[in-house]
Amino acid sequence: MRSDYLLSQLDVLESESIHIMREVAAEFERPALLFSGGKDSIVMLALAEKAFRPANIPFPVMHIDTGHNFPEVIDFRDRRAAELGVRLIVASVQESIDSGRAVEETGRWVSRNRLQTVTLLDAIEEQRFDALFGGARRDEEKARAKERVFSFRDEFGQWDPKNQRPELWNLYNARIKRGEHIRVFPLSNWTELDIWDYIERENLEIPSIYYAHERLVFERDGILLADNEYLTRTEDEQPFMATVRYRTVGDMTITGAVVSGATTVAEVITEVAATRITERGATRADDRTSEAAMEDRKREGYF
């Protein structure tokens, strides 16, 4: 029996996230959950399932598909959505490019990362979504560390970090005008380690690339990239086999792998607990362009 009425940190975080999700379901007309098939969105989806049980999740999930994703992750995405019986909306960056809404970048880091914003904002407008759940955590990055749980976006999808709404206790202001929307971050207070601890505790399935596997990789600017059809290697970038796993899951063009032998959640947790580098620092080329890369992207309407 509990006599001290204390909750573990995971229980506190879970309860806070569920509260946030129910608040959105109650206050918005057309919410959706951004689901990439990555570990954070997997946890977020698991929490959504819990929040409304035994009813179905009362909103669709949406993936912004860059076309440069890991195939393992896309498979996982489709399977998970089917299992849960949720409606999966896929908005394609390729289609944005084909229709002339977005222009493919060129250069060494041919990333579609930034283009996702165009596709995302178009999809929000088209689907008339008024709230979108994102799996971002404040511990990921210094601009994210500043963002509210209910983060207001104007009619252009922009975030104004200097003018955020006050947010007190567990009271979230959900009021918006037509054309505006709110990005909601139920995992705001979770750390990378909390996510892994939760995956272990809840026995959540995650895409195989999060565990150590053999892969043909090459090194660019200190990042281990999967040898893939979307990137052109230079002569010194010779591919080699390595045992790696992924700490984050983004595009194949910008997401680096880490050398690892961790094949179970417990082993991953041991590694994460001992690591001295942040997950984005270790693996994301998109944040290396400038000190304020994330803030700038977020202002434009990025996740």
């Binding site: 560390a145 750390t191 803030e295």
Partner: peptide, 30 residues
């Protein structure tokens, strides 16, 4: 480490709350 916004760094002051997380063997801190 906490003043992460462009404007904060330009002005050398904190503008909005930064949330940081750490844990010791005794407790998790937000």
């Amino acid at each position: 480490l906490t003043d992460g916004l462009r404007a904060e760094r330009e002005q050398g002051i904190t503008i909005d709350v930064a949330y940081r997380y750490f844990a010791t063997p005794r407790r998790k801190f937000i």
